[in-house]
Amino acid sequence: MAFFRKRGEKWEYRISYVDRRTGKSKEKTKGGFKTKKEAQVAATAAEADLNYFGFDENGNEKVEKYFNEWLEVYKKPYLKPITYSVQERNVRLNILPRWGNYRLKDLTRSEYQKWIIELRSHYSEGTVRRIHSIFSTAMVDAVHEYNILRENPIQKIKIPKDTESKEKVQFFEKNELEQFLNSVAKPIKNAKYKHSIQYYALFTLLSRSGLRIGEALALTWDDINFDERTINVNKTLVYPLNSTPYLSTPKSKKSNRVVKLDEETISLMRKHRVNQKEVILMYEHYQPSKDKVMFHQHDGRWLRTNVVREYFKEVCKRADLPILSPHALRHSHAVHLLEAGANLKYVSERLGHASVKVTADTYLHITKKLEDDALDLYNKYMDRTKTGQA
């Protein structure tokens, strides 16, 4: 219940409530309101928070209880399932084992900074930044949303940077890609579904479109327009470990896009559609997909990402090539486009990157080489001009 009184020219409220964890009666008081009405509105909101969250005042709540509530209220309803699972796992495996029994008010910047340095001895800079981001965001909400801390206790934390340069993206050179695809096209001896060209179609599509593996595996035959030679990318397949696969929205807003295909790839996709029907008729246990999935397992379900990766590795071995991952085909497409002289903005939009900067940063070594080549051409042109004038 809330009580109100005027102190000088300002109003204040006092709320009596029972702490859920201890069962003890407590009070919360706040003043400085210009009118009684303002105090009443604020008191109503405060009562709702106390009834909903049930946290101790002044940061006495345990970190574990706070994080569990915070994930449910501020994260789970607003994040994609796969994103939420990553954040929940970081909280459960990294944050709570170290800080779960602490009270929020006992968190100190110096002890937290030591922990961050310790984390860097086990994890990459990017991973530690993600863990810190989750923790810091939760503390900001403890201040501004829950009003149980006066300030974020882990502000201005320094994360040791990687001393080594970033690893270059992995891709196939033009001749290597041709060697890889030729190897995929050859049927594997003693293969169960030898007549199927599914993997050849899938890997060719990835290498000629720049699609992410999840985007490709989510495709249905309704997503391709053979007349206009386009594929509509509007979903991605998420295959969590030991969990049920599901369709989600693309990685970013710009990942939702229409990708133009070359005539050769469109022709192969036509063959794949016919071949898929032939395989279903040819093999007794090979079932069609109820959702008209473009690439699917023998029982009609989506292809598993880990199965595709393993098949990819086997092809790399057969072709006597470096053992990469299917994502290397996306990188290969981007690199080959840039080397062919494609505009960086076009490549960025085709890949569905959030910004051109992402593309430039990802393929920095390629763009730098292209810049050097362009300057060489410019210098040669200027030298010829001078000679002509002479």
Rank of each mutant, 00 (worst) to 15 (best):
Arg5Glu: 15
Lys6Pro: 03
Trp11Thr: 10
Tyr13His: 08
Ser25Ile: 05
Lys28Gly: 00
Lys34Gln: 10
Thr35Ser: 13
Lys37Asp: 04
Glu38Thr: 05
Val41Ala: 11
Ala46Gln: 13
Tyr52Leu: 14
Asn58Leu: 07
Val73Lys: 13
Lys75His: 06
Val86Gln: 08
Val86Asn: 13
Ser110Pro: 00
Ile116Gly: 00
Ile116Leu: 04
Leu119Met: 15
His122Arg: 15
Thr127Ile: 12
Asn147Cys: 06
Arg150Glu: 14
Ile157Phe: 03
Lys166Phe: 02
Glu173Pro: 01
Lys174Asn: 08
Leu177Glu: 00
Glu178Asp: 13
Gln179Thr: 12
Ser183Phe: 03
Val184Asn: 03
Val184Cys: 13
Lys189Ser: 11
Ala191Ile: 01
Tyr193Gln: 05
Ile197Glu: 04
Tyr199Pro: 00
Leu206Ile: 09
Leu217Lys: 06
Leu219Trp: 05
Ile224His: 08
Ile224Asn: 03
Thr230Ser: 10
Asn234Glu: 12
Leu237Phe: 12
Pro240Gln: 09
Thr249Cys: 02
Lys254Gln: 11
Glu263Arg: 13
Glu263Lys: 15
Thr265Gly: 08
Val274Pro: 00
Lys277Asn: 09
Leu281Trp: 02
Leu281Lys: 15
His285Trp: 02
Tyr286Met: 06
Asp291Asn: 14
Asp291Ser: 13
Lys292His: 10
Val293Phe: 07
His296Cys: 12
Asp299Thr: 11
Thr305Phe: 02
Glu310Pro: 00
Pro326Cys: 03
Ala334Asp: 04
Val335Leu: 02
His336Lys: 07
Leu337Ile: 01
Ala340Arg: 10
Val347Leu: 05
Val347Gln: 00
Arg350Pro: 04
Val358Cys: 05
Asp361Tyr: 06
Tyr363Met: 11
Asp373Gly: 11
Ala374Val: 07
Leu375Asp: 01
Leu375Met: 15
Tyr378Ala: 15
Lys380Arg: 15
Asp383Asn: 14
